[in-house]
Design a protein around this nucleic acid. Structure first.
Lengths: 234, 234
DNA sequence: AACTGCTGGTTGTTCAACAATCAGGGGGGA
DNA sequence: TCCCCCCTGATTGTTGAACAACCAGCAGTT
């Protein structure tokens, strides 16, 4: 029957529909706003964020601001002390060392996974992030270039195929942005990596594992050095 | 002078004093209580935890309960859906697979770090956790034995010397306990590992890397299989 | 110069209320 | 009979105000 066919069709369409993302709550939107403000440089590392002031500024209640803070604290963007409130986290050289050690461990081993054939590359996301970075660079948007760079490396780690590792790495990447904030000249830092990432991307797609590995390691070593220096300078 | 000497002495004693841990807030204590209740089996996986009921039961306000929930959610002990509240997290077979993949990755590579001499072992913590496990087993406390087992493996990962990796692993270990909760016979599961862990511990201290590696891998494979089966059975 | 005690401001927590949303249980209509 | 809509009760999301606990800094004392 027509009705049955139509019903089947509807049924299929419904099954394909991705489950609707839950409405962002006020606390979530507040967290997004604060996060963006940190990334764009509005709230500098070390700055205190009094609850009352933020509640007034964002037009939400103090309790909601607190909920937003909890989220950002778990993202390691805010530091918290009992009875002293929250401040924008300040990266120390030790943090930079730790972060890059973990990046080396997980990004380089991802290439080994590819080499051994234990995993395969989804080059779509990788290419997208390269393009996004180049576009941001062309528009002189170095915050955006940083975002694309971090996404590029997250895509590499995604090769492992572990949801938990991906989540862990996303947090690491969020912390990295605190390091980027300390850079005195984001342009000089990011510009070389726009082509560097494109090279690595090509190596990976062509299966030139040795070259990809070497190029990635060079990136990590050089970047760590620069970020550590920038972070130490304050 | 007497006074000067006394003052110097006081000064030294003050310098040695560890900074006082901040008072646990009500939200923190509430989180501890809920966590312990989950581990001891009071709140089963899948159980809903209405805010009002918990507030009444714990004798704190609803806002405080919410703060406690946020913490436990970041520990992956509670699952949360907007407008639906929180439930005790239920581990799926996919979760078990992911967790053990990460455990293999990080625990086995820790032994390689030791073998290569890039890191050295602090055998104190390792031995302590072995002893704690045996003591708990002797007292028929299999929740405690699970705790000790998880700590033992966390100590292995600590070889990497990365604070962030340690934190990540602690979360993984917390999730593991949800898996332990699904076991029908904790005794049968944990008892063999009391001696197994002691063996691994000895291998590591004596520098028998190959044997340590093999024994650890056997443990991980066998345990994954058992926990996955237990988790699938509900 | 060092210690003591205040003081203003911030955080920790509670309470009560209302809006938004969900789960489940009837009626109507086909 | 089956399906859909709507209603209802219960739970969560958010607010605003209030008070206690606590911190940093300043002033006064010795």
């Amino acid at each position: 029957m027509g009705s049955s066919a139509a019903s089947d069709h509807t049924r299929d369409a419904l099954a394909d529909l991705p489950s609707l993302a839950p409405l962002p709550t006020a606390a979530e939107r507040a967290a997004d706003l604060i996060r963006e403000n940190i990334f764009q440089g509005g709230f500098r590392p070390g700055a205190a964020l009094p609850e009352t002031a933020l509640a007034r500024a964002l037009g939400v209640s103090r309790n909601t601001v607190r909920e937003a803070y909890r989220r950002l604290i778990t993202e390691h963007l805010l530091a918290y002390e009992v009875h002293k409130g929250v401040t924008v986290r300040r990266l120390a050289p030790d943090d930079v060392r730790d972060i890059y050690r973990l990046r080396r461990m997980h990004e380089l081993s991802a290439i080994e996974e590819l080499r051994s054939g234990a995993a395969t590359l989804d080059d779509g996301g990788l290419r997208d992030s390269v393009v996004a970075g180049q576009r941001a660079g062309a528009a002189d948007d170095w915050v955006g270039a940083g975002t694309a760079d971090l996404r590029f490396h997250a895509e590499i780690v995604a090769v492992h195929g572990s949801p938990r590792l991906n989540g862990f790495f996303r947090r690491l990447m969020t912390e990295m942005r605190l390091g980027f904030l300390a850079l005195t000249d984001p342009h000089a830092f990011h510009a070389p990596y726009l082509v560097g990432n494109a090279d690595i991307c090509e190596h990976l797609i062509q299966g030139r594992w040795d070259q990809a590995h070497a190029a990635l390691r060079r990136y990590l070593d050089a970047a760590e050095h620069e970020v550590a220096r920038a972070v130490a300078h304050r």
